[in-house]
Amino acid sequence: MTAPSSTDTVFVFVHGAWHGSAQWAATRRALAGLGAASTAIDLPGHGFDAPLPSGYLQPGQPGLLTEKSALATVTMDDSTQAVLDALRQARHHRRVVLVAHSAGGAPASLAAERAPELVDEIVYLSAFVPAARPRFFDYLDAPEHSAARGRGLNLGDPGELGAVRINPLSQDPAYVEELRQTHYHDTPPHRFDRWRRALTPDLPLAIPTTPVVVTPDRWGRVPRTFVRCADDRALPVAVQDLMIAEADRAMPANPFTVRTLPGSHSPFAARPHELAAALLA
């Protein structure tokens, strides 16, 4: 039996915190040039239709530190359902590859646990893997994460806001530079400025805090690849390697295939053609 070609494959992209389906556009164009189909989703509360804090676009951004997020009621089940809907629409392809970035690893993993028959492979792009620790925050508290940048980007009290809030439209040069250094340090400055303005400020608190339980007979049976980002300053490579190692110990019958890309947490912005080639590899 021959291996599936790129024309048999559809990639289903799940973005990370504060992003949306548009972040994958350049990667999807590169994949199309290589003969592969793809689709990308907006998780609830993300993308260009995301609800914003009332003062976010106003001068001085009143209330940004204290106004409760409109996304406070968004649940992990809501986000998982969005992934499942996309997978069902893509199932007519011979091979479906689910690609998750960063915090998107949580709903993507739960979708694969609930419907492993819809997924032929999962690719974690510097993404949360819940096999050993069920919450994304569990890894952000690990000693391996101590070298991460960006701790000063979060605004207010996430518990009170119901969201992890950042300010992509900040007028503070130091804040903007920390955002760039954390997520986009290898993206040209003029492109970074456009990227950050497309981000949304709120990540529903349920995404990093809701436990995601996966099992060997369901999630564990799906072939999986981890694409490491070698100079990731948001989720350092030590944390990426910790998640890979712990998942392989928890599910030894089906270990990760591991690939490595140079550069930052956001290869879809800095090197989309390399990312597309790695996905097709």
Rank of each mutant, 00 (worst) to 15 (best):
A3Y: 11
V14S: 09
T27I: 07
G35H: 07
A36V: 03
A40Y: 08
L43G: 06
G47S: 14
F48A: 15
A50D: 03
L57F: 11
G60F: 04
G63F: 01
K68L: 04
T75R: 12
T80L: 12
L84N: 05
D85K: 09
D85W: 01
A86W: 03
R95W: 04
G105W: 02
A115C: 07
A115G: 11
L118Q: 07
E121K: 07
I122W: 04
F128R: 14
R133I: 01
R133W: 01
L140Y: 01
A142Y: 01
R149L: 15
N154I: 03
L161Q: 11
V164K: 11
V164L: 13
N167T: 06
S170P: 07
A174T: 12
V176E: 05
E177W: 02
Q181E: 10
T182W: 06
R194H: 06
R196C: 05
P208K: 13
T210P: 09
V213N: 13
P216T: 02
P216R: 13
R218N: 10
V222A: 05
D231Q: 13
R233F: 10
V237Y: 01
V239H: 06
D241L: 12
M243C: 04
I244V: 15
I244Q: 09
A247L: 03
D248Q: 05
A250C: 06
T260P: 07
L261H: 06
H265V: 01
P267L: 11
A270R: 01
R271P: 03
